[in-house]
Amino acid sequence: MPVTDAAIPVTDSGYRRSDVTYDVVGVWQGAFFRLDDHINRFRTSMNSLRMTPPESDAQIKAILNRLVAMACLREAYVAMDCLRAAPPPGKTRHPSNCRSYLSCYAIPWVSVATPEMFARGLHLIIPKARRIPTESVDPTVKNFHWGDFTRGLIEAEDTGADYPVLLDFDDNVTEGSGFNVFCIIDGKVICPARGALEGVTRASVLEMCAELGIPTEVRDIHADEFRDSDEIFASTTAGGIMPASRIDGRIMNNDRPGPISARLKDLFWAKRAEGWHATSVDYSVATTGDSAP
């Protein structure tokens, strides 16, 4: 159905309690990027939350492929959600009483960063809002608990910045609102060890750094160290690699993307164009009607 016609009941736990996990995979030039990695992460998240929809991983892949093919999209943002429904009559709203089901859609490609942001670099802030503790919500399970990010986005808007990067309660950097973050210090690319989603694009950055011989480190990054770093960039499915040029008003690299960040961004898209980690969309299913392997 058209995405504008899709709906979930307002009584479902997915809506009433944000009892949802999800994943998003990108399609570029007619091919999914790291589809198996996204499906594996989605399944891991569902298992963590004890969600058991009837579809197998192969069937989920086929559903996503069919959505892209039916929409005739060459560049797409493809979402897979798993939600819990309302309990049957007479049952309590305990998760074990609510069935799990999928809701998937494909829409034209969207990006976290606008063309202007890519050209000048993201303007970031570290807001007062803190990341929800990992003891409360596991950040490696992709979720809809965005209360902390929403507060951060409001703070960013009030200061004229584009996006927030949230700290944990030990003043270490975690992640931004929908993206992983990296900083570069003395030529080394560093990303947080805790409190963030284990991003698929994040993994791609580490692979590219190994290919280029750029040293990397995964460790805690204190806020002061992050603010004083040589370069900062973000990574996400919806945008790829997005260099920053400002953090809390501090201008880096003459108010433009830094050289290592820009190099990684350009390499990322060059490798995508060459078919790196690509799974071609089978557009024939839009006419044959096949929806399962």
Rank of each mutant, 00 (worst) to 15 (best):
M1G: 00
M1D: 00
A6F: 09
I8D: 01
S13M: 15
R16C: 05
R41A: 04
P53W: 15
P54L: 15
K61S: 06
K61D: 02
A62F: 03
L64W: 13
N65T: 13
R66T: 10
L67V: 09
L67F: 12
A76S: 13
A76G: 10
A76L: 05
M80I: 08
P88N: 05
K91Y: 08
N97F: 12
Y101T: 04
Y105K: 12
A113R: 01
P115H: 14
F118W: 13
G121Y: 12
G121R: 02
L122S: 09
I125N: 01
P133W: 13
S136K: 11
D138Y: 06
T140P: 01
V141F: 05
W146I: 10
T150F: 15
A156N: 10
D158Y: 04
T159F: 15
D162W: 11
D162P: 11
F169P: 01
G178S: 07
G178K: 12
I185Y: 03
D186N: 15
V189M: 07
C191L: 04
A193E: 08
A196I: 05
L197D: 03
E198H: 14
E207Y: 14
E207Q: 15
M208F: 09
A210Q: 11
E211G: 10
P215S: 14
V218Q: 13
D230Q: 07
I232E: 03
S235W: 14
G240T: 08
M252H: 11
G258S: 03
S261I: 07
R263G: 02
T288M: 07
